[in-house]
């Protein structure tokens, strides 16, 4: 079981801060959502927690160890990432891309064996990508690639998973399937899950806790009910009076358009 932690972290590119003084913690079995406007730095937090970028100040801890002290391969056995729709090399098949998730588990002179193939195959069945296995990835749709990347992170067998807009390209059916799968893994296998999500309704329904990021800082933190409030949404997104209560599960739900006439009038 792994815990992810950021302590007063400042992140930026070329000394131009994108995020300041960020403190967060993701515990095992917990699914935490990062929400905030475009460009607020959600992906930057994911990059920092996978050591693609280093903090300008503050400490990042993975499993209570300073992230800079963990060798990259070891880190990749602890923390897996689903990136936001990357370009994949067109000449590889879907199966080969998923199999790359085994890379951190293999030594320099090792190659994948029967066990690795079985793990990859299972992950593809779970994510509904088994039919795509022998297709070249340049023939796949955005949604199919997203499912493939989820399969790859399962193959990586990490105790912590970071997801950057994991369902942005999925239809509503697949979105539910994939999020249910991640949620199930999170609770059943005690994974620490951090997901950057731009869809506030998805965030409210699936995450145990939310961090609302705005203007380089954590604007609000807490349960979806505590974070997705009329006041916070207005302060951060400038949208007024759009938070309602879901009729079935009682969670906050954001509906745009109810006040369209009013906004158009001003």
């Amino acid at each position: 079981m792994i815990e992810l932690e950021m302590q007063k972290v400042t992140l930026g590119y070329d000394h131009h801060p994108v995020l300041e003084d960020i403190t967060l913690r993701v515990s095992p079995g917990e699914m935490v959502g990062l929400i905030g406007p475009n460009g607020s730095g959600k992906s930057t937090i994911i990059k920092a927690l996978s050591r693609v970028i280093s903090p300008e100040s503050g400490r990042i801890l993975v499993d209570r160890q300073d992230i800079t002290r963990i060798p990259r391969r070891e880190l990749a056995c602890m923390v897996g990432v689903v990136p936001q729709l990357p370009l994949l090399p067109s000449t590889f098949t879907a199966f080969e891309i998923v199999l790359m998730g085994r890379n951190p588990h293999l030594g320099l002179f090792q190659s994948e064996g029967k066990r690795d193939w079985a793990i990859a195959w299972q992950a593809m069945e779970k994510t509904g990508t088994d039919e795509l296995a022998n297709r070249r990835v340049n023939e796949l749709s955005g949604g199919e690639i997203q499912c493939l990347l989820i399969a790859r992170v399962l193959v990586q067998e990490t105790q912590a998973i970071l997801l950057d807009e994991p369902t942005a390209n999925l239809d509503i059916g697949r979105q539910g399937e994939i999020l249910d799968l991640i949620k199930k893994l999170c609770t059943q296998s005690n994974l620490a899950v951090l997901a950057a999500v731009h869809d506030l309704n998805v965030a409210a329904q699936y995450c145990d806790r939310l961090l609302l990021i705005n203007e380089r800082r954590v604007h609000a933190e807490g349960t979806p009910r505590e974070v997705i409030t009329d006041r916070n949404i207005k302060e951060v997104y400038g949208a007024e009076n759009c938070v309602y209560t879901h009729p079935v599960n009682g969670l906050p739900t954001v509906l745009l358009g109810a006040h369209m006439n009013k906004t158009n009038g001003t």
Partner: peptide, 14 residues
């Protein structure tokens, strides 16, 4: 092979 993905993904895969 892994580096055929972008550099960011390759790093995240160890």
């Amino acid at each position: 092979n892994v580096m055929q993905l972008d550099e960011e993904q390759a790093q995240q895969l160890g």
